[in-house]
Design a protein around this nucleic acid. Structure first.
Lengths: 207, 207, 207, 207
DNA sequence: TATGAATGAGAGTTCATTCAT
DNA sequence: GATGAATGAACTCTCATTCAT
């Protein structure tokens, strides 16, 4: 028996789990959770449907592991930003950049989250989604409010509307983003920030 | 002769169909198409599952009718805007406003479209979704290009990115919009346009 | 109000019934009883499925009326032959000829009978099918036995086998017979009788 | 080492399929394909309806496998006869004998074929039925024609009528034949051939 | 670890039948 | 006589899950 079995990559068993979860996430993202059969995941992974149950309790537990894994990493990044003591504008910039990085690394999980979270939040098992949403909203709303207060952001904003605007604008990108494309996540973040912060209108309006 | 005989309710047969489609759309939007059972729709409509098949060929044909009905109305509005000979900026403003009006009138259909269109486009039956998407892209991209050319929009925009930005930004609103709320569609459109066109940053950056 | 309404064709109501039964018989024969939907019959007859229930109690009662109507006419013809006091060979000839006449007049009913009688006989409602079969077997077997006894038929016949041979040979013709073709029923009967009685082999065997 | 390892039971997976197909064939033959529920087959086989779908794609694919399996074996036998270079009369004798052997081995499949082929031929999936029918007709008609030409068969025959006569006469036997009865297939074939070739009439007509 | 076979609940759909109008 | 709408039972089929091997 291995002595350091708690490490992630060191454990071959964990390696297999990850592979299977990655496969499952890809299929969930493409077809939707409900429309995905356990058989399809197994096919894609090269084993039989029943064999997946050696690794996971249920289809739902795969989904759970995918989403919670993603959220854990997301909050590691977000918390680092929020704890850095940046100004409102720089915080928004950092959060948006971090978000695109997460989309880059967890595209499938993000896509699943977008499609499925609305009805998952009603299930006790996925209570952490509600917690995450609340924390998320608090972080963004708070930053926007601070920014309006100190003049970083326009005073005439409907804050809740602006929050939804920025939030959706960023995350929906997961629906079309393909890792390894021409733009790096940071590059996309920069362009998005440019549009969100300064708008798309020309400085000198057309005659 | 009645003065209001041109209204939809004049045809009782079509009235029932509409009611049932509205019910189905609501459930599809809430639970997702795949996760929605025909029995659930029937329950909600107050009849038995089998009875729905007197009115519709299949669950899929309900979805079809909902989406095509929505797109028909959408394009009536869009075409009116596109044929009006407006400048690029005014066109974008009119399209965004029209979009929020459609979200107001077809909230469920829009939500369904957002969630399901990605895999529906692969089915021949829903080929019109592809057509619509192409036409949609052409209208928005073209307007943005014209606007960059005449200085209405910033010259340094990545046009495709800007297109996705505006497109998603508007339509995702269907996921949280509730008709009859405090903001009218036109009011929301105005605020969105303000953010999209001029950004959320303050004019005088914070010290 | 008509004074002689008890006659068959005189009563317009009966006329409608007959039309509908003829339509139903045609569809039953083509598709099989089970595979035929009441809606299909109604379509073919130019009314709605529910409306058939003004004329008939049930789908099964249509089948019943078709089969019993056919058997009534069949036995009128058969009884006339059997009561005519003919010799065995002439009796067989007359029965076969009469059978082809019935196939000509009741093709659909005969086809239905062939396909469905086997499982219908188990239902009490169709008990008359069993009676008819018994009477049928008695008539044919008896005639064959008489014929063997008086030398009309070969002495080395397995009578039961010969009975099945003649019976099937005749009635299966309903599966390909089309009224109004080049051969009259009497002509077909003559050719069949020639084969059944004298065989298809050449008189002088080929070297 | 087992001496009979070449038998079908050597492959356990195929063994189960065969069992299930045999059960299905029996029920289809008895009740008719349409009237047979998948549940009934499952009951008869001792498992649940859904479990059948582990082995077969659909009810229709069971039917398909039953019929194509039967036709494959039938044509193996027929082709051997047709390739043997026999004279017309001997060919007919061999084909009839082979047919009764097939009825003996595939009674259920033959009965199903008789009842269902007429509407199955319209479905593309069962196109091979049409092919088989054409080949069948060609083989029998050709043999009869050759026989008329060389005097083996009567010159005054309507060939098509004779073809149908022989064809039906043989295959309808599947509707009453029960394997393991008093007559072997070869014995029945001999008696049938005697009737078909030489007729049932006595040599010396009754005075 | 993985397979092959089965389970059982529930899905979408069909259809004979009913009945108020 | 016929329609339009609905019923309710049954059907074929799907699928997450289990378990002996």
């Amino acid at each position: 028996m291995p002595t350091n079995s708690k490490k992630t990559t060191a454990n071959p068993a964990h390696g297999r789990r990850r592979e299977l979860l990655a496969t499952a996430a890809e299929v969930f993202a493409t077809q939707g959770y409900n429309a995905t059969t356990v058989r399809r995941i197994a096919d894609e992974a090269g084993l039989l449907a029943g064999s997946l149950y050696y690794h996971f309790d249920s289809k739902e537990s795969m989904l759970d592991e995918i989403l919670s894994g993603f959220l854990d990493e997301l909050w590691t990044g977000y918390d680092a930003v929020l704890d850095a003591g940046l100004g409102p504008r720089e915080t928004i910039e950092a959060l948006v950049t971090e978000s695109f990085r997460e989309i880059d690394r967890h595209r499938a999980a993000v896509a699943i989250y977008q499609k499925e979270s609305r009805h998952l939040v009603t299930q006790p098992r996925f209570g952490y989604l509600v917690d995450s949403q609340r924390k998320f909203e608090k972080a963004w709303l708070g930053t926007l409010e601070r920014g309006v207060a100190d003049g970083s952001f326009r005073a005439d904003l409907d804050i809740r509307l602006a929050y939804r605007f920025v939030r959706d604008t960023v995350w929906v990108a997961a629906s079309w983003y393909r890792p390894g494309g021409t733009h790096s996540p940071e590059e996309i973040a920069r362009q998005y920030l440019s549009m969100v912060l300064d708008g798309i209108a020309g400085r000198e309006p057309a005659a």
